[in-house]
Design a protein around this nucleic acid. Structure first.
Length: 435
RNA sequence: GCGGUCAUAGCUCAGUUGGUUAGAGCACAAGAUUGUGAAUCUUGGGGUCGCGGGUUCGAGUCCCGUUGGCCGCCCCA
């Protein structure tokens, strides 16, 4: 038993694990590039204040934070948003708009582990800065669906729930709630799906008994699942902001429909995504079966760049976590089995064969071919088995017979055919085979 | 921060009301087999039974503590 083990919630990545992670990262990255997003990164360690400024002092209990040797209060990053806001904010005037950026990075949170949640995890983050209209949401939600669909997941597997904190603000204001009550009510709405009427307990404690008519209107509203229903409920109110907002909704849903993505989208006013800094549309991706934690979440945060010391800059973003996503892929049988196969495996007999093989091995590797061979003398029979097990397509055979004849035997491991070629032509033959 | 549950080989597990030197399969390695592929056979390495303490003539087994895993609550940026 090992004396040392990894810290609680942290993960070792053995080659098989890393292959799976790399598969996920590669497809995310490729997808982001197809959408015209540019990749960036930021420090793993940031000033503690950066996170306090965004989320409040309580956040510290959930951070890996400490005082460094220079007396600075620092924290391992728990998320990317504050960092990217700093990056963008610092050069906002010099960056071409719209700013479409993504990153794939590891994050750290001091929390209890649960299914799909650990103390370190990776996220794909994507943000658009400088675009105030729903065009940015169209682009991001389209990319979010593609980031999941590119693994073979379909509308049977996941969907994106779409809601709008602005509409809630306008609606609750129109119902006569002041700012504090609106905030309290949004908290209740967020919990309603899970707790039903109990979700209003906190609100009642804070603001007194809840008017039945008001409650009915709120519950009706949060049950809205379509644009038609939204328009029916709100259209008649003659509220100027609401009317304008409904136009944004039409543009957003129309854009996603034109991209052929309607099957992934569910209007659901029951989503408000906690408290935080969201200011407009919010969206979350879930598995259809509802068995897992959220796959991804995002929304508009138009005030945050300015709040963190930058210029006023509208922004929308989302993040996909790797843990829940990997669980979903495993569940649906969409996680491939990765074999790190060489292209070529060399079968070597004796010292003469080894000397002959080494020259070719190095030349082939220099050409970019993956070549492997047994480091110690091994019985021929076993070497052929090793060659087959390795997944290589070709075996190059350097036995005493071949060396004596000045040839190399090339065995095609896929169709089990063999032929001898003069030693000097081996490299060329192999190159032709793979071209 | 709170609760449930579990911990025996690299993995999956067995281990009787407490009893002698803790087992199996898989995996890994060597050999049968220095010349041809997923087989077979033989053999081997690997365990302070998570850790610490207690009860007992005797603890993998019972008790207490602790650490860690998994699951849930709070939270979820």
């Amino acid at each position: 038993m090992a004396t040392f083990q990894s810290l609680p919630g942290f993960r070792d990545f053995y080659p098989d694990d890393l292959a799976r992670r790399k598969h996920i990262f590669d497809l995310w990255r490729r997808t982001a590039h197809t959408f015209g997003f540019a990749e960036y990164d930021a420090p793993v360690l940031e000033p503690l204040e950066l996170y306090k400024a965004k989320s409040g002092d309580e956040i510290e209990t959930q951070l890996f934070s400490f005082t460094d040797k220079g007396g600075r209060e620092v924290a391992l990053r728990p998320e990317m948003t504050p960092s990217v806001c700093r990056l963008v904010g610092a050069k906002a005037n010099a960056l071409k708009r719209p700013i479409k950026w993504f990153s794939i990075a590891e994050f750290y949170r001091y929390e209890r582990m649960q299914k799909g949640r650990g103390r370190c995890f990776s996220q794909f983050n994507a943000d658009i800065f400088g675009e105030p209209g729903p065009e940015a949401e169209i682009e991001l939600i389209a990319m979010l669906t593609q980031c999941l669909a590119s693994f073979g997941l379909t509308e049977e597997d996941f969907y994106v729930r779409l809601s709008d904190r602005n509409l809630w603000f306008y609606y609750l204001e129109a119902l006569g709630l002041d700012d504090a009550r609106v905030r309290g009510m949004l908290g209740a709405i967020d919990r309603f799906e899970k707790y039903g009427d109990d979700a209003f307990k906190g609100y009642v404690e804070q603001f007194g008994p809840l008017d039945d008519v008001l409650k009915t209107k709120v519950v009706e509203f949060l049950r809205i699942k379509s644009l038609d229903a939204l328009e029916q409920t709100l259209g008649a109110m003659g509220h100027e902001k609401i009317t304008a907002r409904l136009a944004d909704w039409k543009k957003l849903l129309g854009g996603l429909e034109a991209m052929g993505l309607s099957r992934f989208i569910a209007v659901d006013l029951g989503v408000v995504r906690g408290l935080a800094y969201y200011t407009g549309f919010v969206f979350e991706a879930f598995d259809r079966k509802g068995e897992l934690r959220a796959l991804a979440g995002g929304g508009r945060y138009d005030d945050l760049v300015e709040k963190l010391g930058g210029p006023a800059l509208p922004a929308v973003g989302f993040a996909i976590g790797d843990m829940t996503f990997a669980l979903l892929l495993e569940q649906r049988g969409l996680m491939p089995n990765f074999v790190q196969a060489p292209d070529i495996y060399c079968v070597i007999g004796g010292e003469n064969g080894r000397r002959a093989a080494f020259g070719d091995i190095h030349a082939l590797r220099a050409m970019g071919r993956r070549v492997d061979y047994p480091m110690k003398d091994v019985a021929f029979g076993k070497q052929f088995k090793l060659a087959a097990d390795s997944g290589a397509k070709l075996a190059l055979i350097y036995g005493d017979d071949e060396v004596a004849k000045g040839v190399v035997k090339i065995r095609d491991l896929t169709d089990r055919t063999e032929r001898e070629v003069p030693s000097a032509q081996t490299i060329a033959m192999v190159r032709d085979y793979f071209s």
